[in-house]
């Protein structure tokens, strides 16, 4: 029980810290925030009195903490405010962007799992064999290839040379194949390394030969003794993969001109549209805190020893 309280407390501290750090960053960003709001709202240079009025309205004149309160209060009720550039509410646009990114991330994760799990299982059947060594080599190479280069290479091959697939935009389902493949190959490379070492460790447990000699079928040993042991690192990695997927989505969406969350964030930063940037950061933090909480709880289910160990 105290462990659960500790986990929840951590989640709250992380969220509060992220909100504070984000606000502090934007507070210290170059440029006058009141001027930015004025230009966005009236599209003109305004007299100093109006700037003072805006400052009073947004709580900017009473110092950092007052401005922070003005900013955080509506967010706590789920109101992300309006874009400082277009004046439109942030949430509907953000929702549309998320609706494009989630399927991409899921497709990338699916491709990564489909490629890496069978390969890792077959490769570790004979550690040091040709299949094992070549998967390690490919995975090392994959870890060194950045998504922005892989994406360009895939466009070059499948869109420019072969002309099989569309490269830019998000109009049809076919538009998702190349971005998802870019993400999925990166996921596969990182999953492969961790799955492999997890499986090797699970297969090296000293009681497995004893079970085999007692006549327990190979499949049953795999299902009942190897798989649960190898599941712990996989759960950890799925948490890390989520971070990877989100980072990858930022880059991949920019390469493939796909108007998802990544493009939303990059455009918001370039336009200095801070309400949009803040909304993305807060949502990302919320997503990661939730996932880390779930991972923490899953650990406790998979490995009863975890509770007593300090993370």
């Amino acid at each position: 029980m105290t462990a659960l309280v500790d986990v929840l407390l951590r989640a709250v501290v992380v969220l509060a810290g992220t909100a504070l750090a984000t606000f502090a960053l934007l507070w210290h960003a170059p440029g006058d925030p009141a001027l930015a709001i004025a230009v966005a709202r009236y599209d003109a240079v305004v007299p100093p009195e109006v700037l003072d009025q805006i400052r009073a309205q947004a709580g900017l004149d009473a110092g950092f903490w007052s401005a922070f309160r003005h900013w955080i209060t509506p967010i706590l009720t789920g109101d992300f405010g309006s874009s400082s550039v277009s004046g439109r509410p942030v949430w509907p646009d953000l929702r549309d962007a998320i609706a494009l990114t989630v399927p991409l991330a899921l497709a990338g994760l699916a491709i990564g799992l489909v490629l890496s799990v069978p390969l890792a299982v077959f490769a570790t059947r004979r550690p040091g064999g040709w299949l094992d060594r070549s998967t390690v080599a490919v995975a090392s190479l994959g870890a060194a290839i950045p998504a922005y280069w892989l994406g360009l290479l895939l466009i070059l091959l499948f869109a420019v040379h072969l002309g099989w697939l569309p490269a830019m935009g998000a109009q049809t389902a076919a538009h998702m194949i190349l971005p998802a493949l870019t993400l999925g190959l990166g996921v596969a490379a990182s999953l492969m390394r961790i799955l492999r070492s997890g499986l090797l460790e699970a297969r090296g447990q000293p009681f497995l030969p004893a079970l085999a000699r007692r006549g327990v079928a190979r499949n049953r040993i795999g299902r009942d003794h190897v798989a649960p042991h190898a599941a712990v690192p996989v759960v950890t990695v799925l948490g890390l993969e989520l971070a990877f997927l989100l980072e990858g989505a930022v880059i991949v969406e920019v390469i493939f001109a796909r108007p998802g969350l990544g493009s939303f964030l990059v455009q918001a930063i370039s336009a200095r549209d801070f309400p949009k940037v803040q909304a993305v950061v807060i949502l990302t933090a919320l997503l990661f805190v939730t996932v880390n909480l779930l991972i923490d709880l899953t650990y406790r289910l998979l490995d009863p020893r975890t509770g007593s160990r300090d993370a």
């Binding site: 992380v14 960053l25 989100l246 980072e247 990059v266 940037v277 933090a285």
Partner: peptide, 24 residues
């Protein structure tokens, strides 16, 4: 360690993009 967790909980490239972009 909670401060470290806060930073680790966030995808670092996304954080770097936000920081570098906002600071100019």
């Amino acid at each position: 360690m909670r401060a470290t967790d806060s930073f680790l909980a966030f995808p670092d490239l996304v954080a770097a993009v936000v920081i570098a972009g906002v600071l100019g």
